[in-house]
Simulated assay, not measured.
Amino acid sequence: MATVNRPGAPDGHVCGIDAALEVIGGKWKVLILWALHQQPHRRFGELRRMLPGVTEKVLAAHLRELEADGIVHRESYDEVPPRVEYSLTGDGTRLNGALGPLADWGRARVLAARTTR
């Protein structure tokens, strides 16, 4: 997502939510964060199984973007066969904590909608 330089916003963002959504935007990124929160060190195949419907291409692209943004750490081990594990960085852990209230709101909203049917 390209940022637009706006008057009064030297980084091009309107607010902090705008900046955060630039990092977590997309259907799968928050689910990747959730999966890495459930178990700190995950291999690519494990993440793919936890996220039914995600393609390898999209998962790989999102992991690269999250790594570039300092949210996910990629550890490559010099073994045969090669092994790569993904984990949350400190910023990733803090971001997951910030998403907690949003998850609570979502669960409450779904529950309320189901009980009013």
Results as ranks from 00 to 15, higher is better:
1 M>Q: 10
1 M>N: 12
1 M>K: 13
2 A>I: 06
2 A>Y: 03
3 T>P: 00
3 T>I: 14
4 V>A: 07
4 V>I: 15
5 N>T: 11
5 N>H: 13
7 P>Q: 13
8 G>K: 08
8 G>N: 14
8 G>F: 11
9 A>I: 09
10 P>G: 09
11 D>W: 14
11 D>L: 15
12 G>A: 02
13 H>F: 15
14 V>T: 09
15 C>N: 15
18 D>H: 15
18 D>Q: 04
19 A>C: 10
20 A>W: 09
20 A>C: 09
21 L>M: 12
21 L>C: 02
22 E>D: 12
22 E>I: 00
24 I>G: 03
25 G>R: 12
25 G>L: 03
25 G>H: 09
25 G>W: 07
25 G>T: 01
27 K>C: 04
29 K>D: 03
29 K>R: 14
30 V>Q: 05
30 V>A: 04
32 I>G: 03
33 L>N: 08
33 L>K: 01
34 W>T: 04
36 L>T: 04
37 H>C: 04
37 H>V: 05
40 P>D: 06
40 P>G: 12
41 H>M: 04
42 R>L: 00
44 F>T: 00
45 G>C: 07
45 G>W: 11
46 E>W: 11
46 E>V: 03
46 E>A: 01
47 L>D: 03
47 L>C: 06
48 R>E: 08
49 R>I: 04
50 M>G: 08
50 M>D: 07
50 M>T: 02
52 P>F: 02
53 G>Q: 02
53 G>V: 10
54 V>D: 03
55 T>V: 07
55 T>S: 15
55 T>G: 15
58 V>E: 08
58 V>L: 06
58 V>Q: 12
59 L>Q: 04
61 A>R: 15
63 L>D: 02
63 L>M: 04
63 L>A: 05
63 L>H: 03
64 R>V: 02
64 R>S: 13
64 R>M: 07
64 R>Q: 14
66 L>C: 04
67 E>K: 12
68 A>K: 13
68 A>Q: 11
69 D>Q: 12
70 G>N: 13
70 G>V: 11
70 G>I: 13
71 I>Y: 10
72 V>S: 01
72 V>E: 00
73 H>D: 12
73 H>M: 14
74 R>C: 15
74 R>H: 13
76 S>E: 15
76 S>Y: 08
77 Y>N: 01
78 D>L: 10
78 D>H: 06
79 E>L: 11
79 E>F: 03
80 V>T: 12
81 P>E: 11
81 P>A: 11
83 R>C: 07
83 R>G: 05
84 V>H: 08
84 V>K: 10
85 E>S: 09
85 E>P: 01
85 E>F: 07
86 Y>W: 05
86 Y>P: 09
86 Y>N: 07
86 Y>D: 04
87 S>T: 10
88 L>P: 02
88 L>H: 10
89 T>H: 05
90 G>A: 05
91 D>L: 15
93 T>S: 06
94 R>W: 05
97 G>R: 15
98 A>P: 06
99 L>T: 11
99 L>K: 07
100 G>T: 15
100 G>S: 09
101 P>Q: 01
102 L>R: 00
102 L>D: 00
103 A>K: 14
104 D>V: 15
104 D>N: 08
105 W>C: 10
107 R>P: 03
107 R>D: 11
107 R>F: 11
109 R>N: 14
110 V>P: 13
110 V>H: 12
111 L>S: 14
111 L>M: 11
111 L>P: 00
112 A>N: 14
113 A>K: 15
114 R>D: 13
115 T>C: 01
116 T>L: 11
117 R>I: 13
